[in-house]
Design a protein around this nucleic acid. Structure first.
Ligand SMILES: [Zn+2]
Ligand SMILES: [Zn+2]
Ligand SMILES: [Zn+2]
Ligand SMILES: [Zn+2]
Lengths: 147, 147
DNA sequence: AATCCGAATGTTATAATATCACGCCTCAAA
DNA sequence: TTTGAGGCGTGATATTATAACATTCGGATT
């Protein structure tokens, strides 16, 4: 991600929060910036390290609170199978398509693609009502194919 | 799960391992039994507790080793979003359908249904090769609907 | 201005999840 | 008998996440 598009993404995120009546505070903005800067899914404790060049602040609750806020705001997603976090790459409402994002994660280079609208399976058990779906695919992206 | 069907499941699991040239040792069998007995997804440290009525054995590696074995053998699946484990409810090869199981987990009663047959996304990024998929749906099963 | 309130953050501690490293035992092949 | 691999016991440690309480800060109310 270029410096320029990063700035734009942060501005857009700030606007998104304001629309929702919430605040993208400095800590939250910094955490989002770190997530967006990262090449791939990023770990909470790596964020924690990155947050404390100064001696003081930055204990685990700081980063987990920021991540919770960003996830609720739809700006960041958790990769459950990795215990790691990725920046959201799009702007529309996540609930529009009946649930969660679908993530494609390259195990070689860490690239993450987010898709939506997953034609969610017609083979659900009878009468099962889906509230939340976790869909994560791991493999190789087009750039990382051996062949 | 009835005592009877539990016994049958354990016998089948043992046969499955033997076919693969592996051994369902007492520890592994006991862990599988505990997972199968549970009402829903079960945590590693709950298994650990259940394993040590006697003072001695049962440290974390014991249960994690058994779980790794059982997962590799396809007898148990991990629910990534819960850091918990469920018994596999079927016998055929998990790779037949192009990858992982699809889990439907009732947030109210813990019931887990496992389905297969690759809901596989037609909207994968171009050139992306999927090696492993994690698909977990959370919601209410037919028995737990308020309405 | 003074007060109050609630959200956000700081801070300490601890819980919950998972792995490493080493050594011993057993069983079977050579 | 020697040897080697797999399985397991054990102690320590790494990693991930939350609980609980104090403090700060900005805006609303008086
Ligand atoms: Zn998203
Ligand atoms: Zn790649
Ligand atoms: Zn299965
Ligand atoms: Zn239910």
């Amino acid at each position: 991600m270029t410096t320029d598009s990063l700035t734009k993404a942060l501005d857009a995120a700030e606007a998104h929060c304001v629309e929702r009546g919430e605040k993208l505070t400095p800590v939250r903005k910094r955490v989002l910036e770190l997530v967006l800067e990262a090449d791939g899914p990023v770990k909470a404790y790596d964020l924690l390290e990155a947050l404390k060049p100064g001696p003081g602040s930055a204990k685990p609750p700081t980063v987990y609170r920021a991540l919770d806020f960003l996830m609720t705001a739809g700006l960041v997603h958790k990769v459950e199978a990795l215990n790691a976090f990725v920046g959201c790459s799009h702007t529309h409402d996540h609930d529009e398509h009946g649930g969660g994002a679908e993530l494609f994660i390259c195990s070689d280079c860490g690239a993450v693609e987010e898709r939506h609208g997953a034609p969610l399976p017609m083979n659900a058990p009878a009468g099962f009502t889906i509230q939340r779906s976790v869909v994560e695919h791991f493999g190789q992206c087009a750039n990382c194919h051996p062949g």
